[in-house]
């Protein structure tokens, strides 16, 4: 009898721990194909260097993959024997190597897009998660994923996703560190490597799509406004942020006010939706009428203070404080206080 009970308990544990065991197993099988991961990561690194016009070397591979110089040199030899790169002072990709690298990059960026749009995995985990996943997804699975996501062309960091045939657009980005004080621009990309720098930039609340206005620059620091909030970072960090000029119709607003600042009974006009609001949530808000130009008013507040009911396009919608904080507004006239 005890045996049966033990069996039941084991089954229960299995069911509960099922995803963990699953992912454990996946990680183990990856250790076996460690070599493949190194190969793919090295190719990606060299591709990245070429895209950014910097020199990819054995040394930089060692640094990027966190392996010894000897190990990196062996890896480079292996890649050459596979016909993926041409060695020399500077490592160069062959056509085959480039297309391989682009395939891996495509999977990586698609997966980041998926995590950003379709799951609630926090932003700081996307890149690492995708680093594991990129070696794990077959070409067929990747295409199915792409279709499911509506064949996206950019990843959530603003990087273009290569097409199946390995095409990429020209880029005309500049680093934030190249701006002078008084310049305005739009963040188009935040480099997600190294992770420590990226985590810091995310912690500052920066994301692609923000409007920036540089206040002062010096060799120690760059001070700028991002959507009206003041941010100070080191120039080294600023090099990881890419910017593009504002499109003509974009105007850089004064300090953004958020919907959360609207008091009960007040009315305002929506001027934008933070890019940090993504995926289903973003679409839902836009469907409900949270788009630039529409009127929004704070109607009443729930018993516990969160959520808050807003009138949007004639409908009363309850939104949580966290979401209200992601909606930018221009305060309008105040409704005369009613009893």
């Amino acid at each position: 009898m005890e045996l049966i009970l033990i069996a039941i308990v084991i089954v229960l544990l299995l069911v509960i721990l099922y995803p963990k065991i699953g992912s454990l197993a996946a990680r183990k099988s990856m250790n076996a194909s460690n070599e493949r991961i190194y190969v793919e990561d090295a190719l990606k690194h060299i591709y990245d260097c070429e895209y950014k016009n910097i020199n990819g070397t054995v040394q930089s591979i060692a640094g990027n993959l966190n392996i010894s110089y000897d190990r990196a040199a062996k890896l480079a030899e292996r890649l050459e024997s596979l016909g993926m790169i041409i060695t020399g002072d500077v490592l160069r990709l062959t056509a085959e190597g480039r297309s391989y690298a682009l395939r891996v990059i495509r999977v990586h960026r698609l997966w980041e897009r998926y995590l950003a749009d379709e799951t609630s995995i926090p932003e700081k985990e996307w890149h690492l998660n995708a680093e594991l996943k990129e070696h794990d997804i077959s070409a067929i699975e990747a295409e199915a994923l792409s279709v499911q996501l509506g064949n996206p062309v950019y990843d959530p960091h603003g990087d273009p996703i290569p097409t199946v045939n390995g095409e990429l657009p020209e880029k005309n980005w500049k680093p934030l560190s190249s701006l002078q004080s008084g310049d305005v621009a739009r963040i188009v990309h935040i480099e997600d490597e190294p992770n420590t720098v990226y985590a810091q930039l995310v912690a500052e609340g920066l994301y692609p799509g923000m409007h920036v206005k540089v206040i002062e620059t010096s060799s120690e620091r760059i001070k700028f406004e991002a959507n009206g909030e003041e941010v100070i970072i080191a120039p080294l960090f600023a090099g990881n942020i890419s910017i593009a000029p504002l499109a003509e119709f974009e105007t850089i607003p004064e300090k953004y006010k958020t919907l959360l600042e609207l008091k009960r009974g007040q009315e305002a006009e929506v001027i934008g939706l933070s890019k940090a609001c993504r995926g289903t949530q973003r679409r839902r808000l836009m469907d409900l009428g949270v788009v630039p130009g529409s009127k929004i008013s704070n109607e009443f507040i729930s018993t516990w203070g969160d959520p808050i009911a807003y009138k949007i396009c004639g409908a009363t919608i309850g939104l949580r404080r966290k979401q209200a904080k992601q909606i930018f507004i221009k305060p309008g006239k105040t409704e005369s206080a009613k009893a």
């Binding site: 995803p19 995590l115 749009d117 379709e118 799951t119 609630s120 995995i121 995926g279 289903t280 949530q281 839902r284 808000l285 409900l288 959520p307 009911a309 409908a315 009363t316 919608i317 309850g318 939104l319 949580r320 979401q323």
Partner: peptide
């Protein structure tokens, strides 16, 4: 735990 990664969105329509 198990549902950590599932998509999540909030809005609550309060009909008249």
């Amino acid at each position: 735990t198990v549902l950590k990664g599932e998509a999540s969105a909030f809005s609550l329509e309060l009909p008249p």
